[in-house]
Simulated scan of single mutants.
Amino acid sequence: MRPRTSSRSMMAMLAAVIALTLASSSAVSDTPPAASAAQQAAMQAWERAAAIGPQHRQLHWFKGRWKEHIQMWMEPGQPPRIEQGVAEVRPVLGGRFMEMRHRGQFMGKPMQGLGYSGYDNLSGRYTDIWMDEGSTAIFVSHGDYDAASKTWTYRGQMRDPAQPGALIPVRQVVRITGPRSYVFEWYETRAGQESKTMQIDYTRL
């Protein structure tokens, strides 16, 4: 994971700087000083970054309980393995993100998964993260939305357990197919060839 300062840490540092500035200024006066123009501009920028917009409300469409029909292609040219599952999706953190909790089967064993999706006001892109009991890695991808096809397309990379150090490009497609249904597709690129290795058809319960 790349070392970086999180939004939470940056907000905490900004608040601390403003608080210390105001505290030092008010030490010689009982009247709290007004925030400077720079401080007001910084606070307004943070408010815009945290604001809920149409892209966030758009993701609220996925709220609810879903039946999953899962197909997984383990080898090219072979029929897919079929599994079933249930997913529950809800808005969290004031509606800024959507949380998915998955329960199903994988290779005949129970499998749980947890995912979050949202829209980053600063980058202007959607972000999706996923983790489950099949790995200790957290998969992160970024994408965009096409209104004409009602499709989100995300791209990321995953490490290949069978080839230590190798990174596999991944493309994820989320497409609304009806008022109570959508499909999720997972594509992997290996040796320069992209192929679909998983598809999940969701039906609202």
Rank of each mutant, 00 (worst) to 15 (best):
V183N: 03
G165K: 10
P161M: 06
I82F: 06
P179S: 12
L114E: 14
G134K: 00
K196Q: 09
Y116T: 00
M100H: 02
Y126T: 00
V183D: 13
E99V: 07
I168S: 10
H142F: 14
L167V: 10
S195A: 06
V170T: 05
M131Y: 04
A87R: 09
D128Y: 13
M100K: 04
Y182G: 05
Q193P: 05
A147L: 06
V170L: 10
G124S: 14
I129H: 05
G115C: 03
D144Q: 04
G124I: 12
E188H: 01
G178Q: 13
L114A: 05
Q157I: 06
Y202H: 12
V140T: 15
Y182F: 14
R96F: 05
E133L: 04
R103D: 15
S195K: 03
S123T: 15
Y116K: 01
L167M: 15
A137M: 08
K150C: 01
M107A: 13
G94Y: 07
R171E: 03
G77A: 02
M100F: 05
W186S: 08
E88S: 06
M100G: 02
V173W: 00
R159G: 15
T203N: 07
Q172A: 02
F106P: 05
E185Q: 11
V140Y: 08
K150T: 03
Y182I: 00
L114N: 07
L93Y: 10
H102V: 12
A148L: 06
V86S: 14
M100Y: 06
V140I: 15
S117D: 00
W186M: 11
S123G: 08
G104Q: 14
Y116F: 13
I200S: 00
H102M: 11
R90L: 09
K150R: 08
M158S: 06
I82Y: 04
G113C: 14
T127C: 12
I200G: 00
G95S: 08
N121K: 02
R204E: 12
W186E: 03
L167S: 15
Q157M: 14
F97I: 10
V183G: 05
